[in-house]
Write a protein that binds this DNA or RNA. Structure first.
Lengths: 177, 177
DNA sequence: CCGCTACATGTCAATAGCGACATGTCGAGT
DNA sequence: ACTCGACATGTCGCTATTGACATGTAGCGG
């Protein structure tokens, strides 16, 4: 049940509506950390409002409701972030695919590995651009989030790309031998 | 629905029982790629056996049943692995925590970042040992899996560790200024 | 031979999450 | 005036997943 914490985190950076939260999940958060659609988000916001973790601070056009974190919500988020990181739950289909590669014939595996290497290169290029746009904004607060995310994604892509190239190298050497 | 593919992948490396599959998930697979408990695995194996993707090749002591992949299962796995990687679903609580760090006071964030850096160092050390034990075994087949996993985890830990140190550096510089 | 641990498989109720469907509004362009 | 795309929130049924509970066996040390 990490969704409520993700929502608290986003709202604590700055208040927004369920719709805007959904967009945030489609952008950074959902790509690397935790994906969720609006069908999970709206009901969860209502639950959290009932529990007193968030509150509606403004009602705009088209029924839009802006949520903000309450002191109780802020406390809950802080406690969660500072609590000892137990056994984490991981679900990542891409990574699973990589792990299962050794079940393929070497020739097939090479095809997939090359595809991975290309995809990560593209990711690195994209994020380098994002990084340059952000520049030297402060780490905490509204801008910090995007920066942390971009920098993390960048290193993540780079690492996967290097791994893929390592695997390609290993495989090709074996094939040749 | 990646669980059946994960099971096909593991079994295609070498046949084993549901119990041994469960152990495999607790070890590498569940740590980085896809976690699942025995309560998902056993029913899934039965479904897959009914669907003709796997079959019981041996019955051992204590009711243990060894499963192996059928040709149909092998075909299914190959198709899945070679099919275009669509939009991936990601769920990783640790990464989520990292993303939400910017919602904390800088002092609190630094505490967590230092903890992350330490944890990744430990992970790197562990996996370096695993890598040395494996040595130069071939990439595909029974040994390949562990190697791919270890190498991937190693690079993953290293990348996260570097990211944490980058963030610490940034934060401390801001605090000082 | 007793007790403990690891082996080995399962059910079932509750919860989480997704895809399909549903509804309505505001603003821009034609 | 009209249409269309983005804004904005929701329900509901189906499937996936988890946690608690249940059951029994083989082997080992004392």
């Amino acid at each position: 049940m990490s969704l409520p914490h993700a929502l608290l985190g986003l709202l604590s950076v700055h208040p927004r509506s369920g719709y805007e939260l959904t967009k945030a999940f489609e952008r950074d958060l959902g790509r690397y950390a935790w994906q969720a659609g609006h069908t999970s988000i709206y009901p969860e916001l209502n639950r959290m409002a009932e529990a007193g973790l968030v509150e509606v601070t403004h009602e705009g056009a088209r029924g839009a409701r802006t949520y903000d974190v309450t002191p109780a919500g802020r406390e809950e988020l802080r406690t969660w972030l500072l609590s000892p990181p137990k056994q984490a739950k991981v679900r990542n289909e891409q990574v699973l695919r990589m792990f299962l590669l050794s079940a393929l014939e070497p020739a097939d595996a090479l095809v997939v590995l090359h595809r991975i290497a290309e995809a990560t290169d593209q990711g690195v290029t994209e994020l380098r651009k994002v990084r340059e746009d952000h520049g030297e904004a402060p780490m905490t607060g509204a801008e910090g989030f995007g920066q942390l995310a971009a920098e993390f994604g960048l290193r993540q892509y780079a690492a996967v790309g290097e791994w893929a190239r390592w695997a390609i190298d290993r495989l090709e050497r074996e094939q040749g031998a």
